[in-house]
Simulated scan of single mutants.
Amino acid sequence: SMANISLCGSCNKGYKLYRGRCEAQNVDSERSEQFMSLETELDFQDLELRYLLQKMDSRLHVHTTFISNEIRLDTFFDPRWRKRMSLTLKSNKNRVEFIHMVIGMSMRICQARNTTLDPSFFVYVNPFSGSHSEGWSMPFGEHGYPRWEKTRLQNSQCFNWTLLLGNRWKTFFETVHIYLRSRARLPTLMRNETGQGPVDLSDPTKRQFYVKISEVQLYGYSLRFNPDLLRSAVQQVNQSYAQGGQFYSSSSVMLLMLDIRERINRLAPPV
Rank of each mutant, 00 (worst) to 15 (best):
G166R: 02
G144N: 10
L256V: 07
F76V: 01
A233Y: 06
K212F: 15
S37T: 13
K83M: 06
A184V: 14
Y18H: 05
S68W: 00
M254H: 11
L267Y: 00
F44P: 00
P269R: 01
R113Q: 14
P139S: 09
L255S: 14
V62C: 12
S1T: 05
W169M: 03
Y219V: 14
R21Y: 01
N12G: 15
T175R: 12
Q154S: 09
F98G: 01
L52M: 11
C158D: 02
E193M: 15
F247H: 14
K170S: 08
N69S: 14
Q45N: 13
M257P: 05
C158I: 02
Y51E: 15
F35T: 04
V102Y: 13
Y18P: 00
L223G: 06
Q34H: 05
S250D: 15
F173W: 06
T151F: 03
I71T: 09
I264E: 00
Q208E: 12
S137Y: 02
K150S: 08
L60R: 01
H61G: 07
W148R: 01
M36L: 15
F122H: 15
Y124G: 04
Q208D: 07
M138F: 00
L153N: 11
F76Q: 00
F140M: 02
V216Y: 00
C110F: 06
G141D: 00
L17Y: 14
W136D: 07
E193N: 13
L53H: 12
E48G: 13
L87W: 04
N12I: 15
Q34D: 14
R82G: 12
H63D: 10
R224Q: 08
E48A: 15
Q111C: 08
I67A: 04
A268E: 00
S240I: 07
K212V: 05
F128R: 09
G14Y: 15
R80T: 13
L60M: 05
D203S: 08
I103R: 03
V237N: 11
L60P: 06
S129C: 08
D28Q: 08
G197H: 00
Y241D: 07
E149D: 08
R82M: 15
P139G: 10
V237G: 05
Q196S: 11
I5W: 03
S250P: 04
I109H: 06
Q246D: 13
E39N: 10
Y145F: 12
T64I: 03
L38Q: 03
L164R: 08
S240Q: 14
F209G: 02
F98H: 11
L201T: 11
N12Y: 10
I67R: 08
V123I: 15
G135Y: 02
I260T: 07
L186G: 05
M85P: 01
H100A: 05
E97Y: 13
F35I: 10
S222C: 06
S251I: 02
G220N: 06
D78H: 06
W169I: 04
